[in-house]
């Protein structure tokens, strides 16, 4: 499984804007490159990142071949309740990775 680093504030006040960051190790092979012998290197990219906050989807991003290796996505959401922030990346060749972090909202 791929290595991922996520940053979620451990505690926050209700109504605060949270900045979340998700970094994952992935080659993001575009599918446009060729080997020395001219054969096309098959595409191998992450297609989607979904972030759920206590099971409710708060962010979704579609990835495309022009995105660099080891993509870092940063976005914001509003702190509503204590619980779990879960990130799920899915992609080509049945790629799938999940990472989660708890958050306490006061």
């Amino acid at each position: 499984m791929a290595r991922a680093i996520i940053q979620v504030p451990a505690r926050a006040k209700r109504g605060d804007i949270l900045e979340l960051r998700a970094l994952i190790g992935h080659v993001m092979e575009t599918g446009f490159r060729r080997t020395e012998s001219g054969a096309l290197v098959p595409r191998d990219i992450i297609r989607q990142l979904v972030c759920t906050y206590n099971g409710i989807e708060v962010f979704r991003a579609d990835f495309h071949p022009a995105i660099a290796a080891n993509p870092l996505i940063s976005f914001t959401t509003v702190a509503t309740e204590s619980g779990k922030m879960e990130f799920r990346w899915t992609g080509d060749n049945d790629f799938s990775a999940t990472e989660s972090a708890p958050i306490t909202v006061e």
Binding site: R3, I5, I6, Q7, R21, L23, I24, G25, N70, L72, S74
Partner: peptide, 13 residues
């Protein structure tokens, strides 16, 4: 910032 430095993926490995 260890949360955004992509080299941290290698450090963890």
């Amino acid at each position: 910032d260890d949360a955004t430095n992509p080299a941290m993926l290698w450090v963890l490995d």
